[in-house]
């Protein structure tokens, strides 16, 4: 009798314990870490214990620095810089593989973005302190070097060979590649995390307590910290990975002789692309894809072909035009919520 009296509540407690374990929602908050890489700020919110977060962040920045050492067009010591300087140079496996991915992506996007635009972007100098409008003759000469078919990635001799005067500019892809590398690191540790890298965002894992990740979409007409809408994502699994990238004409621009030039250059004309759009935000399952797609969608504009691209990559997008009108693709409409009433829906029937 006495034994039963003890056993019965004990059994009950064990059952309760198991039940509660399944609802386990540890409410410890995140560790925030910051680093500077690829000419941008990288901020990570890691939902991990402090010591684990330090180790994880070190590994993340290590991967980013490694990628930067291969791909940076600005760092004279990088492999891509050597290729650009000599027209042909040795390139390690990572550089060749990543460059190959970029070229393939450019082909799939009909050359709307082009990784061989380096000579043109160099003339405009948007990544320097003194961007300027190039002379027409110089621009045409630079434009003549652009072309994916003149770039050779030689895996046998482990070299990359460029066409005459051709230069590689991985600018539209770099942060995406870095976020892909970071997501690989996060996969090995499986702590939930939010990483923003110069305006591109990586969401990893499930937020605590069944909440959603929320990402503010920058207000193209406001300041750096202003957003006009929020995207919320509620992951269904612990290894969820989502990438969000934005291309906006407000990012880098300068005014010369009364004309404002923004930094998103058309590979066709060599000039800033003329469009009604002011920003395109892309949500995709891959970092490289989301980064390249946001640029390609901005350049190509909102049309059936652009929407077709998004669909074929399993991506979704938010388009914003000069009149403060927005268009959200179907797959993202549930995630999208407007926070600034000055913006109105765009009259576009996809």
């Amino acid at each position: 009798m006495r034994v039963q009296r003890i056993l019965r509540p004990a059994a009950l407690l064990c059952a309760l314990l198991t039940l509660c374990t399944t609802f386990n929602g540890c409410s410890s908050s995140y560790q925030e870490r910051t680093a500077f890489a690829m000419g941008s700020v990288m901020t990570a919110r890691l939902y991990a214990p402090e010591d684990k977060a330090d180790d994880l962040f070190d590994r993340m920045t290590g991967k980013v620095e490694e990628a930067d050492r291969c791909l940076s067009a600005n760092d004279p010591a990088s492999e891509i810089a050597a290729v650009n300087a000599k027209g042909s140079a040795n390139a390690g496996a990572f550089t060749r593989k990543t460059l190959g991915d970029m070229v393939l992506l450019c082909h799939l996007l009909n050359g709307t973005v082009d990784v061989t635009m380096g000579a043109v972007t160099q003339l405009w100098g948007f990544s320097t302190d003194e961007p300027r409008k190039p002379e027409e003759a110089d621009l045409q000469a630079a434009l003549a070097t652009v072309g994916l078919d003149r770039l050779l990635i030689d895996n046998t001799n482990e070299t990359v060979v460029l066409g005459e005067g051709q230069k590689i500019d991985p600018g539209a892809f770099g942060k995406g590649v870095a976020l892909d590398e970071i997501s690989n690191v996060l996969h090995t540790a499986s702590y939930p995390a939010v990483v923003s890298f110069g305006g591109s965002v990586l969401l990893y894992g499930q937020p605590r307590n069944g909440k959603s990740w929320t990402v503010g979409v920058r207000d193209p007409f406001g300041g750096e910290n202003d957003y006009f809408a929020k995207l919320s994502f509620t992951p269904e699994s612990g290894d969820y990975t989502g990438f969000i990238s934005t291309s906006g004409s407000y990012e880098k621009s300068f005014t010369q002789d009364g004309v404002t030039y923004h930094h998103i250059l058309s590979p066709e004309t060599g000039y800033p692309v003329e469009t009604d759009l002011v920003s395109v935000t892309v949500y995709a399952p891959g970092g490289l894809n989301s980064d390249a797609l946001s640029t390609a969608c901005f350049i190509n504009g909102l049309n059936p072909q652009t929407l077709q691209w998004l669909q074929s990559f399993g991506a979704e997008a938010v388009f914003v035009n000069k009149d403060k009108e927005y268009y959200v693709t179907d797959g993202l409409s549930d995630a999208f919520s407007l926070t600034d009433d000055a913006f109105t829906p765009m009259a576009y029937e996809g």
Binding site: L13, L16, L17, C20, F23, G25, C26
Partner: peptide, 14 residues
């Protein structure tokens, strides 16, 4: 049993 109860209580509470 008390230890188990304490754990269950904190889980329940969370």
């Amino acid at each position: 049993i008390l230890a188990a109860a304490a754990l269950a209580a904190s889980f329940f509470e969370r």
